[in-house]
């Protein structure tokens, strides 16, 4: 991965413009996913693997590609990403 591991996030956000004449209260932040497959390019050999049982549950054999998703608008859901 060419990205800086210290600043790498799988979710980004932005604040849409909210004008004084908009009918609804502002949603605040809008979130979008930037999953790992956007950054890896061709998968390098010998990446670490999940144990088989865990891999079956996660949907991938490789932790590099694992990206748990939670509704970002749910109360208490991981704010502060991106």
């Amino acid at each position: 991965m060419k990205t800086n591991p210290k600043t790498f996030t799988k979710r980004k956000s932005y604040v849409p413009f909210h004008g004084p004449c908009d009918p609804c209260p502002p949603i605040g932040r809008k979130y979008y996913s930037t999953p790992p497959n956007l950054y890896v390019g061709f998968q390098p050999p010998n990446l670490p693997q999940f144990p088989p049982e865990e891999a079956l549950k996660c949907g991938t054999l490789w932790p590099t590609f694992y990206d748990f998703y939670e509704n970002p608008y749910k109360k208490g859901a991981g704010r502060g990403h991106g």
Binding site: P35, N37, G41, G59, F65, D67, Y69
Partner: peptide, 20 residues
């Protein structure tokens, strides 16, 4: 649904590799 979403991530990765 999370399992299915993860499979989409992996499939996208494989199609990107196919392009390469």
């Amino acid at each position: 649904l999370r399992f299915l979403r993860e499979r989409e991530v992996v499939h996208s990765q494989r199609f990107r590799e196919a392009v390469e």
